[in-house]
Write a protein that binds this DNA or RNA. Structure first.
Length: 259
DNA sequence: CCTTGAACCTGCGGGC
DNA sequence: TGCCCGCAGGTTCAAG
């Protein structure tokens, strides 16, 4: 996509999670793509019009990169044709995703980006930062790490896997963790994310890599989705609970030790 | 301010 | 075969 000109945009519906931006088609057609960036789970496509196309994939969203003709699927909602004949399609059955188009100047003031915490691979994501942020917070550590204003980009699968790697009880109040545990969380976060990226991500159903292939990290899950299966470390059956509306998978033996 | 639960929407698998 | 229920990679509101 980088360096290509967007020759044609087709909107097959007028909204996803939110209404599509005003005059989206007219503002994109003829524009050149200068750069592709990311912040948290938001894809940022920088255009030569001083504007940035922001895409969030929600739960079921997917970007298709098509080099040949493909029949239209009912959930192919927005189609971008590029000058090199490649077709990019935004596909999203549940439509929890979003597309926005904003001026490059205001990008850091965008409501969704403004409140985000540090990137997990940045230096500002460190044990002292987390200790400070967790002070006086009774929220369970599982929910704390899922909060995008604490650290940007961690999702449900990876938080479960990170807490297992650190042997931390997912129900522990965030304020109860000690520095050593925060240090372990920082290390495990980067380790889990690195390995997941290396494996092409986790395909439960919808996620695919840009080349169309599925991801493979689901085969490396140690707790996520493994309800009633033996813990790979101790053999205890993996449990499931619900925290803030999200499933948490954990080993009740490995992650319940006071150490 | 803090935390939880519901809402948004479609599809799939299991039980009956 | 078909219907109903629960569940799913996320985020944002409203309510308490």
């Amino acid at each position: 996509m980088k360096g290509q000109t967007i020759t044609k945009v087709t909107l097959r519906r007028e909204d996803l999670r939110y209404p599509l931006p005003v005059s989206l088609k007219e503002r994109l057609e003829g524009r050149r793509i200068l750069e592709l960036k990311r912040r948290a789970k938001y894809l940022l496509i920088v255009l030569d019009s001083q504007e940035v196309l922001m895409i969030h994939l929600g739960m079921s969203g997917r970007i298709k990169v098509l080099k040949t003709e493909e029949p239209l699927d009912k959930h192919d909602h927005v189609i971008f044709n590029l000058a090199n004949s490649i077709e990019i399609r935004y596909h999203d059955p549940r439509r929890f995703g979003a597309i926005d188009l904003i001026s490059q100047e205001n990008i850091e003031n965008h409501a969704a980006l403004k409140k985000l915490g540090p990137e997990p691979f940045s230096n500002s994501y460190n044990a002292q930062f987390l200790l400070n942020r967790a002070a006086c917070k009774t929220v369970p550590i599982k929910s704390f790490l899922l909060n995008q204003s604490v650290v940007a980009g961690l999702g449900n699968i990876y938080v479960c896997e990170i807490l297992f790697a650190c042997r931390i009880d997912p129900t522990s109040p965030a304020e109860a963790l000690i520095v050593k545990q925060w240090e372990e969380i920082v290390v495990s976060t980067r380790d889990v994310l690195s390995r997941a990226i290396q494996a092409g991500g986790s395909t439960l159903k919808d996620h695919h890599q840009p080349n169309g292939e599925i991801g493979y990290f689901q085969h490396a899950f140690k707790v996520y989705g493994r309800l009633n299966k033996p813990c790979v470390v101790c053999g205890t059956l993996i449990q499931r609970l619900t925290q803030a509306g999200r499933a948490t998978f954990y080993c009740p033996y490995c992650q319940d030790h006071v150490r």
